[in-house]
Nucleic acid binder design. Sequence first.
DNA 1: AACTCGGGGTC
DNA 2: GACCCAGAGTT
Length: 369
Amino acid sequence: MRRRLLAWYRHHRRDLPWRTDPTPYAVWVSEIMLQQTTVTAAVPFYERWMKRFPTLRDLAAADEEDVLRLWAGLGYYNRARNLHRAAMQIVSEGDGEIPHTVTDLMDLPGIGRYTAGAIASIAFGERVPVVDANVARVLARFFAVREEVSTADGQRILWDHAEDLTQTNNPGDLNQALMELGALVCTPTSPRCDICPIQPLCRAAQRGDMHRYPVLRERPEAVEVTEVGAAVERKGRFLILRRPKSGRMAGMWEFPHGPLRGGEPAETVAPMVKSLTGLDIHIDEPLRTIEYTFTHHQITLHVWRARATGGRVHRRSHDAHRWVALRDLMSRPMATAQRRIVEALMESAGGRQLDLLELGEESEESAPI
DNA sequence: AACTCGGGGTC
DNA sequence: GACCCAGAGTT
């Protein structure tokens, strides 16, 4: 099975950026980005990251604000904070070298059994297994594992199989081959058993019931949430708040917003901004409604344009605030939903300039673009 | 063992 | 629009 798999991998492996020079740091960064994130989504972020933080020391020396700025859009922001903290930990407490073993790697924040195994095997050649969603699927089919993947029994069985397979001279390639097969051939909904190099040895393929593996836990139903928010303007600048150091989206900037607990959205904005910031505002007009989904929440966020009319910013659940000009908003670390608010503001500003241009054209003047 | 994480691609 | 993804941390 290993021989077939490795032969296939050598021929079909994708040319991914972290494979051109798989230093321990490169492997580490890629593995953190790829946690719960598809390869396609991670690639452009990886390229930018390595340009800005080429080495572990560059990362350790960076401000968290810069780290989050580069991560903005990838989601799961604690990954970036943990990566940064781990880099600082290695440089300050260690010798500046990334640990070589699973045990030592797992002492670092953001590195669990999977990521420790990936770094140790790929970068250092340690004979240790990895079980991610790809490997779990491949092995569950190959060995016809009936146990639910997320249970303790299911995990133990899969890790045991993976560990057996990894007792070889090139554990890093073996692990990557398993993941690559899961990504390209042994896919979730329609596996390509016809082109699979290990199909003749696969229990599920022999039985013809590939679709029954892996056994996954039922997902909870999505919860619909309505939120209201405001782009509050004062003297041409907009109010943004920074979330505290811990918890969800720690350290990220956002417009004042919050869940609608009842009543009409339009009538809830001003009280929400008041309780969040202490500011009195005047609502001008609806700006945009933004819909997005995460985990099992479906959010509908209604955002209004508003002006500050009085009061002082006191901040309740945030640790900083700034009044920022529109052109500077995008350079703050903000999650995607918040960036869409900035986009809406820029589009409406652009529209206003276009209105001016059209007025100019009506008066027979040539307007520069 | 269950829950959370605030992104996005694929089919 | 489901479903899934190179998981980890917290409760």
